[in-house]
Computed example of a mutant assay.
Amino acid sequence: MQGTGILFSEMTPPPGREDAFHAWYDEEHIPLRMAVPGFLSGQRYGVDGGFLAVYEMTDLSALTTPAYDVVKNQPSALTKDMLANVSGFTRYLAREMSVQRKPDLGGKALMAPLLYSVFFNVPEDRLAEFDAWYEQDHVPLLMESPDWWMVRRFAITVADPVPFNRLALHYLGSMDAMTSPAREKARNTPWRAKLAAEPWFKGTYKVFEQHGPRQTGRVA
């Protein structure tokens, strides 16, 4: 159910139409994508009245198939209506660069109840050092927390509305991870301090709670 490409998309339901929004998303929007070859699974999350869906694909080529073209460009009347009235829309396509997970969790890590997303827009000439810091210094220290189940890092290929180019998805067993000694340690290393002094080092952070069951596709 975990692939090397993801579609990360947020929406806030139209006021007063939350139930209709959830029914549409669970019964039409996700199932249509799960029928497209290359789509492995889709999981919804929620935070502060808004909702996120993360779609797992074998790779990003799943988005260039004739089947996906039909889903994307021939929406139903209900889909047209919902998309015309939602707010807070985001859409990021991303290619997985690395994965670090608790060895004993295996596929369970993907089912974590909390998803902590971290976006950055890193200058091209600083990407190599940023990537090295995140993978060699930052993530290993975070993973010292028992509640830090997995970290996946992505290169963003399509960004809407903010031109981020790096995304990290942190799969957490509980909110205790966010106040853990491991996180405090990871945020206070000399390497991080060096990067944090640069004007571009401004991450965008959000913690989402799992919403509903994961739906799976043809290739799982």
Rank of each mutant, 00 (worst) to 15 (best):
V47C: 06
T157M: 09
F51G: 03
R218Y: 06
T58C: 00
D59S: 08
G38Q: 04
V36D: 01
L141P: 04
P190E: 03
G212P: 03
Y25I: 01
L93F: 13
S9W: 00
L93K: 10
K102C: 07
A112H: 11
E28G: 02
D176F: 09
A132D: 06
L115H: 03
T157D: 12
N121S: 14
N165F: 13
P37C: 01
W24S: 02
A196P: 05
F89V: 15
R152A: 08
N121Y: 05
F208C: 08
A196G: 09
F201V: 07
A112G: 10
E184W: 07
H170G: 11
V99H: 09
R166Y: 13
S145F: 09
V118S: 13
A84E: 12
A186N: 03
L78T: 14
S180C: 10
Y171D: 09
V139H: 14
Y25Q: 00
S87H: 11
A77T: 08
E18R: 02
G46P: 00
R101Y: 12
P123S: 09
V219G: 04
G50Y: 13
P14K: 02
P31C: 04
P31V: 04
L105P: 00
R187D: 15
K206A: 15
T90A: 15
M150V: 08
L83M: 14
T216P: 02
L127P: 06
G203E: 15
G212A: 11
K194S: 12
S41P: 11
D59R: 08
G16I: 02
L172F: 10
R214F: 05
Y92Q: 05
Y92A: 04
R218I: 10
F8V: 12
M178A: 14
L141N: 08
S98T: 13
V162P: 08
R33V: 05
K206G: 07
D69L: 08
A196H: 09
V207S: 06
Q43R: 13
V99D: 09
V54P: 02
A177F: 12
W24D: 01
I30T: 04
S61V: 00
P66L: 01
Y55N: 00
L7P: 00
P14F: 01
P113Y: 06
S98A: 15
P161M: 12
A128V: 06
D131N: 15
K72G: 01
E124D: 14
F39E: 00
V70W: 03
D81Y: 09
V158H: 13
A196F: 08
L7D: 00
M175G: 11
E27V: 04
T79V: 08
P66S: 03
D69T: 13
F164H: 15
Q100S: 07
M143G: 06
M34N: 12
F208N: 07
L78S: 12
D69Q: 12
P190N: 05
P199A: 04
F164G: 11
R187K: 13
S174I: 11
R101C: 10
R95Y: 05
F208M: 10
M34Q: 11
E28Y: 03
L60Q: 04
